[in-house]
Amino acid sequence: MARMNMIQALNSAMDVMLGRDPNVVLLGQDIGFFGGVFRATDGLQRTYGEHRVIDAPIAEGGIVGSAIGMGVNGLRPVVEIQFADYIYPGCDQIISELARLRYRTAGDFFAPLTIRTPCGGGIRGGQTHSQSPEGVFTHVCGLKVIMPSNPYDAKGLLISAIEDDDPVIFFEPKRIYNGPFDGDPDKPAVPWTAHDKGEVPEDYYTLPIGRAEVVVEGAEVTVLCYGTMVHVCKAAARLAEVDAEIIDIRTMVPLDVETLRTSVEKTGRCLIAHEATRFSGFGAELVATVQEECFYSLEGPIERVTGWDTPYPHAFEWEYFPGQKRVAAGLERVMEAG
């Protein structure tokens, strides 16, 4: 075991997989010699060579398209898109091609890609370095969609994603690369070392795709969240003095309905939180799922706390970000209702 931050854990996952499987290759902008703008691939080109850790031209459509070709020809590409905000030029290749290749060829062709991309705000990145576009991809059938909230999960899930024969979009909340962030920008940054999920095995291990995790047990309300918001929701529940059961969704597609149902049947209340915009966001799918599965257990309406339905601004970052206060207010509303 070692203490790792999220970058180190991701780096370790790729290191392990490059070592285990000669077909694993990494492809992305600035990932090779430089080691990535967030340093997630630091040192990997030195170890595995420039034919395994490959710098790419600035062309996301070209990166995804050529990675599909590599995947069809037996490789297992791990693509880095430098910011989730820059994934859109690759979207035709992702949505029309990658997601449907297996279906349209009745299983004769598939491309086992993992697309890693840093997402989320709270870094003064403005509208083109802060987006959380997971809902765009959960709406596409044929893609698995993951967002870890800590180093341990990040490594185990990334290895599973790389080994998975289906395409996986792997979102990395960049605000928590270096430490868990509870939504309060005025507090000094905390490193991962103090967090139990900052303890990460150096070797190979996997976490199953399709399993949520109950990170805090509670009796009064179920909080469904993922990524940075897991840490924000934990702090918000303390602030609101609510005995909340906090569930880290971890993998949005496929969704672990069983864990959600068990919890909501127990608590009878539910709040959903994400950083992404609200309208048609992934939270809407969660609301629908909870009401389909647990309608008769619910004691009040399901609450959503999300980013506003505007682009992510540079000024007013903390008015935009669904921080502790907004989640706590949401928790109070859920508890009062019904």
Partner: peptide
Amino acid sequence: CKGRQMPVMYHWARGNIFSISGNVA
């Protein structure tokens, strides 16, 4: 930009200079 863009992403309608995008090209 009313605080909506990162630094250097200027625009100038009256000066006939279009808005700069963070997404290249």
